[in-house]
Each structure stands twice: as structure tokens, then as C-alpha cells.
């Protein structure tokens, strides 16, 4: 319990630091939101309008310390401010257009990729030199090395445009009203299949190789030999002894990846016209949209911290040694 509490305190400090960084970093970029708006005036320019717009954007002016205090005050009230790139739509609403879709697509792709990769890795290490071990790792390493953009475009062209197995983009059929009905969920699954598949194919290799390599090293360890000597069933040795221990580094990686799910998968979103946070983040950076950037950074930060916390807890469960130290 003390271990968990200590971790929580650490997380509070980390959260404060990253929120502050999320506030400072955008402001270190050249230019400010009003200047970027000016760029989009499409040739119609009025200094008076510009000054007024600066005022309307609020916290673009004033000393940075005052902006910082205002930011925290608004944040504690749950107010993320108005987006500049999508002015005057509140940041929460802008993020809302992509949040669920990013969570669903990137989240499920990560889950599938992690579980399959870890499973394949364990099997490959267990039957070292078997067909799984000799075919999959090089094939997946090759696919992982292909630039993702190209891979996704090719998948869209072949399976969407030529073979017509999958829709050409978007998260659901445009004629459908989003709902929780089975037919709509099926429709979403149909649309998510190809983008998710490309994400899985591109990342599967990392999980598999990581798991395989750790486990291969472990299989020579003394406690495995002991387990064999004790005459335990091979299945139990593979899962309870080898895989469980080999899982630790992959779980750390999974925690990191889980946190970064919310930064979106920009290229997937662009290639498959899929709504999501990656595109919004790029829009925010392009338009010096401090409010939207802060909102997204905050979300990503909290997600990374939460995922790390989960990993910590999982560690305690997976690895008895951490319990002993705590």
C-alpha cells in the first residue's frame, strides 16, 4: 500500500511538471495565434481587426506568468478554453470529435498487436528454429521497416480500390447515424478493419521480437532447468515460468504505447480519412493553437501517467520481487 501511495505522489509531481511543460513549450515556438490567423485572412487585412482578434483570443497577451495562473484556474474549473484553429469552438468539443475514434482504433490495434505479438514471440522462443520462428520474425521485421505511409497507401489501393474488400475510408458509412445498434457497430468494425490491420502489421514485429528474445534468454536460466528437473508439464513451464517472466519488458513497452495511443496515429488518420487526435494535434501546431495543444498535451500526459500507473500495479502482480521491496 505504501508503495502505491509513494507512486501516486510521484505521479502528482510528474503531472504538474508535464502540464507546465505543455503550457511553456507551445509558447517557445515562433509566432503567435493571432499572427497565424492573419495568415488565413486570405488577403483581407485590417490592423484594427487583428488587434481586436488578439484580445478575443484572450490569453495570447499579458505576461506569461499571468497567463500561467489563468491557465491553471481555468483548468481546475474544467475549462480548456477556445480553440484558435477552430475558433470559437471550445477545445473540449474539438477534441470530442476525435477522442473516441482514436481510442477505439489505435487502442484495439495496440491490444491485438500486443497480444498476438507476445503470443507469437512466446511460441517462437519455445519452439526455437520451428517454422513460426524462422518465417514470421524476418517477414514482420521487413513489414515493420517499410515506411508506414507507403504500407497504408498500398493496402488502401489494393484492398480498398482494386479488390473492394474494404471501404475507401472514414469511420462509418456516411449515411448512418452513429448509435450503439449492432448494425452500426458492425459497420464501424468494417471500416476500422483495414486501418487497424495496417497498424497491427506495422507494429507486430516489435512485440514479437521483444518477447521472443527475452524468452529465449530466459529458457537457459537455472530456474527453468529446475522446473524441468522437477518434472513439471512443459505447458506450465512455458506459460507460468518462462512467459510470465519474459513478459515484463513487453509490459513496460505496452504501458508506454498505451499512453501514447491518445496522441493519435496521424498517418492512419490521413490515409484512411479516419477521425482522430493525430490530425487535430497537427492542426493545433500549424495554427499555433495554444489552447488546443494544451488540451491535447494534457490528455496525453494524463493517459501516459495512468498507463504507467497500471504498469506499476501489473508489475507488483507479475513480479513478486517488487512486492518484497515495497
Amino acid at each position: 500500500m505504501r508503495y502505491v501511495l509513494r507512486r501516486l505522489a510521484l505521479y502528482a509531481v510528474a503531472a504538474w511538471a508535464s502540464v507546465t511543460l505543455g503550457f511553456v513549450l507551445p509558447r517557445l515556438m515562433p509566432g503567435d495565434p493571432a499572427t497565424m490567423l492573419l495568415a488565413r485572412l486570405r488577403g483581407k487585412l485590417s490592423p484594427a481587426a487583428l488587434t481586436a482578434m488578439r484580445d478575443a483570443l484572450g490569453f495570447a497577451d499579458g505576461s506569461i506568468l499571468r497567463q500561467y495562473v489563468t491557465y491553471w484556474r481555468h483548468l481546475l474549473h474544467g475549462d480548456l478554453g477556445l480553440s484558435v484553429a477552430y475558433f470559437p469552438v471550445p477545445v473540449g468539443e474539438v477534441i470530442g470529435t476525435g477522442l473516441l475514434w482514436t481510442l477505439a482504433l489505435a487502442g484495439s490495434a495496440l491490444l491485438v498487436s500486443f497480444s498476438l505479438g507476445t503470443l507469437f514471440g512466446a511460441l517462437a522462443a519455445w519452439r526455437r528454429g520451428g517454422w513460426l520462428d524462422s518465417v514470421l520474425p524476418p517477414a514482420l521485421a521487413l513489414l515493420g521497416a517499410v515506411p508506414y505511409f507507403w504500407l497504408a497507401m498500398l493496402a488502401l489501393l489494393v484492398f480498398g480500390h482494386v479488390l473492394r474488400w474494404f471501404p475507401l475510408g472514414h469511420a462509418y458509412s456516411l449515411e448512418r447515424e452513429p448509435s450503439w445498434s449492432p448494425s452500426f457497430i458492425l459497420d464501424v468494425a468494417r471500416h476500422a478493419a483495414l486501418p487497424a490491420l495496417t497498424l497491427v502489421v506495422a507494429t507486430l514485429g516489435t512485440w514479437m521480437l521483444g518477447m521472443r528474445n527475452t524468452m529465449v534468454a530466459l529458457l537457459d536460466a537455472d530456474f527453468i532447468k529446475l522446473a524441468w528437473a522437477k518434472g513439471l508439464p512443459p505447458r506450465q513451464i512455458m506459460l507460468r515460468y518462462a512467459a510470465r517472466n519474459a513478459l515484463l519488458p513487453n509490459v513496460t513497452g505496452f504501458g508506454m504505447a498505451l499512453g501514447f495511443v491518445l496522441s493519435g496515429s496521424l498517418l492512419t488518420e490521413i490515409v484512411f480519412s479516419y477521425p482522430g487526435l493525430g490530425y487535430l494535434l497537427v492542426q493545433a501546431v500549424r495554427n499555433k493553437d495554444y489552447a488546443l495543444m494544451q488540451g491535447l498535451f494534457l490528455l496525453i500526459t494524463l493517459a501516459v501517467l495512468a498507463a504507467n500507473f497500471l504498469v506499476d500495479v501489473t508489475y507488483v502482480w507479475l513480479d513478486p520481487r517488487t512486492r518484497a521491496h515495497a
Binding site: L37, R40, Y86, F87, V89, T97, W101, P275, G276, Y279
Partner: peptide, 16 residues
């Protein structure tokens, strides 16, 4: 061009 639409029909706002 957008990856998702945001509901805003204010015709006077510069840029958006």
C-alpha cells in the same frame, strides 16, 4: 479539408 467536422457556422470569423 478536415479529418473531422466541428460545428461552427459563424460567417464573420476571420480564418475559420
Amino acid at each position: 479539408q478536415a479529418s473531422s467536422w466541428v460545428r461552427n457556422f459563424n460567417p464573420l470569423l476571420v480564418g475559420t
